[in-house]
């Protein structure tokens, strides 16, 4: 009994409720006439689509920089990567790889600047990150208009300049990973390539967190004074975590785009950090601790809920409440995490 109680306090009521809610959705889906096969396909696709952006948050949480509301910076690097690769005329798998290769240096650059900035504003990271992300998205909105993109698929039809609001990846690398080695079982399709890529990224972070740097990073988040006394440069570790997070955010949006089929520019990345943050928190992470397990469970629960709610609830209530549920659950989760006392209280 006590162990159950301890588990519940540790895991947190909100997560249990969400898990039970999702379970309920899956159970009731066949009853209300929603096919499970396509639903599961959807859940897996959306899991893979979002998992890397959730994963991108982990290094910064572990390094004590809090929830990375500045994720849009990484996303912008990814947008530069995909649009430039398209502009240069790469298609298919090479196109996707070139997009990643372009994304990485931009991610490094943005992450470095962003990390340096966050080091100057310790204590207010999250608010500032949010606004820095917002401003960067708006600055890039101007750039999308003025940068000399020329490819007809990319630019706005009538003016011939400025990117379209959403650019189709149909002729480039749409569903590239999703369809790679995809396994079809009845009406359920398992996106093998997508899962492999996500697995690769998770493995990368898993290994990274076990290197000397990764270990130092965790210690900085756990107790910066201890880390400093052990000869670790706290500022440097925080910057490293920010860079890794930003680069991974860029790769994350590339994976998102290929699954979604479109590149969305202008103010689309504005609020993209929030669903990622809530997914991580739903997975059991706190503002100061996050693990791969949190990423996987959280993304699955959150995306599962987002996929299942509209189909199930709509067929029951004949009204689409999923948006409202999404807003309340995701932001409620963030508030819960922000107001929860962290484990170590000095």
């Amino acid at each position: 009994m006590n162990r159950i109680k301890a588990f519940i306090t540790d895991f947190g009521w909100p997560r249990i409720i969400i898990a039970l809610f999702l379970l309920g959705l899956f159970i009731s889906a066949p009853i209300v006439g929603v096919k499970l096969g396509p639903s599961f396909t959807d859940v897996f696709n959306r899991f893979g689509q979002n998992a890397i952006m959730v994963l991108a948050l982990v290094p910064m949480v572990q390094a004590g920089c809090g929830l990375n509301f500045g994720l849009p910076l990484g996303i912008l690097a990814g947008l530069l990567g995909s649009t430039l690769a398209m502009q240069l005329g790469f298609v298919g798998a090479p196109g996707f790889i070139v997009a990643i290769l372009i994304t990485i240096p931009f991610g490094l650059l943005f992450g470095l600047g962003y990390g340096k900035l966050l080091n100057k504003v310790k204590g207010e990271e999250m608010t500032i990150a949010m606004y820095v992300g917002f401003s960067a998205v708006m600055l890039f909105s101007i750039l999308w208009l003025v940068l000399p993109y020329t490819k007809a698929d990319l630019v706005m039809g009538y003016a011939g300049e400025g990117l379209r609001r959403s650019i189709s990846l149909e002729k480039y690398w749409a569903k590239l990973l999703n369809d790679f080695l995809a396994v079809r079982i009845g009406d359920f399709v398992f996106p093998t390539g997508l899962m492999l890529f996500v697995g690769l990224c998770v493995l990368f972070i898993f290994v990274f967190m076990r290197t000397r740097t990764g270990t130092a990073l965790t210690a900085v988040g756990s107790n910066p004074d201890y880390a400093r006394a052990s000869g670790v440069s706290v500022e440097r570790m925080r910057t490293v975590s920010t860079v890794v997070s930003t680069v991974l955010g860029g790769v994350g949006i590339l994976v998102y785009q290929q699954s979604f089929g479109f590149v969305q520019v202008y103010d689309a990345p504005l609020y993209m950090a929030f669903p990622a943050v809530s997914a991580l928190l739903i997975g059991g992470a706190s503002v100061t601790k996050a693990s791969m397990v949190n990423v996987v469970i959280g993304t699955f629960l959150f995306q599962g809920m987002l996929t299942m709610t509209p189909s199930v609830i709509n067929s029951v209530l004949k009204t689409d409440m999923s948006e409202v549920i999404r807003i309340i659950v995701s932001n409620g989760m963030i508030i819960y995490a922000l107001t929860r006392k962290t484990k170590v209280t000095k």
């Binding site: 207010e124 929030f274 807003i327 107001t339």
Partner: peptide, 19 residues
């Protein structure tokens, strides 16, 4: 962390208000 919490609280309220 009042500021960031207040900010998210605004988003949360959006959901309640839409409901």
């Amino acid at each position: 962390r009042e500021m960031v919490t207040g900010f998210i609280l605004g988003f949360f309220m959006d959901g309640v208000y839409q409901f």
